[in-house]
Amino acid sequence: MSESHKELDLLRQKFVGQRVGPYYAWNKVSRTQVWQWCAAMGETNPNYLQKSDAVAPPTMLQSWTFRDVHGNYAPDSTDKNTYEVLGELDSLGYVGSVAVSYDQSYHRYLKEGDHVHSFSTIKDISDLKSTGLGEGCFVTEFAEYFDHDDQLCGDATITYLKYKPQQSSKTNRSETAPLKKVGRISPVENHDSKHFWQGLRDGKLLIQECSECQTKRHPPQPMCETCQSLEWQTIESNCFGTIYSYTAIHYPEIPPFDYPNVIVLVDLDEGVRIAAQLEGTQPEKIEIGDRVQAHIKEVQDGLALPIFKVTAK
């Protein structure tokens, strides 16, 4: 087990399952506080403001047992700090904090005069996860809110991500240094294939043809698989063909391509199949069997490719 796994295991042993509380509300539920909250939030629901039996907005649940502006809990509250685990994660280097989710359930409305207290339990500390923000773990807290008769009024499950901010993440990189312009990967042009890539640079889509048995082949290879001849020539494709299959790639988005990136397998009229990009047709309009034509395009310095367009359905 790695060091970081051990550290998290120790934290789990120390914190998970421990129920901490009570934390008392500084004030009983009052119409004044409800009015202030509704005014701040732009809430106009008469159930909270006007009716004689007005209730507090359920989403105020957490606010009743908030600390005061000095960070103190109300008298008689426990001295224990629910969030000690977050501090320990800070000291392990997981200094980043994000609240990931906050799910509340309400068991009854709170109304004027209710005096709330709460308990909090760390339910889970996840394994290490790789996230877009950096490596870290999710901490799940479960909070319970009771009235003065110890009746459960509501509860909340809160998930935090504590993470080590990434030094080299994509976002950081783009903030600190401009991305080097990324080009397409250049093909290997070797003894067997350089004619093909040179042909494209010359504006021609070349297909290998066996000099002995005239079998055509693509992608290029040195020996004819039909008659084993090493002699071959090229013929120039007229660039017409039929879509045999296709895909529209959405993810991952790899520079420098535009997405969705449509790739087609085309049965060229000369009898070989080739994979290439298709432009000018929305993916949902493409059908197997569509007739296509390739234009040879220089896509970057020294690299030309056949790009297909649909010519007829």
Binding site: I185, P187, P252, N261, A275, Q277, V299
Partner: peptide
């Protein structure tokens, strides 16, 4: 080489 230059990479 016959696929990567078009972004046909996964």
């Amino acid at each position: 080489s016959h696929y990567f230059p078009t972004g046909f990479m996964t």
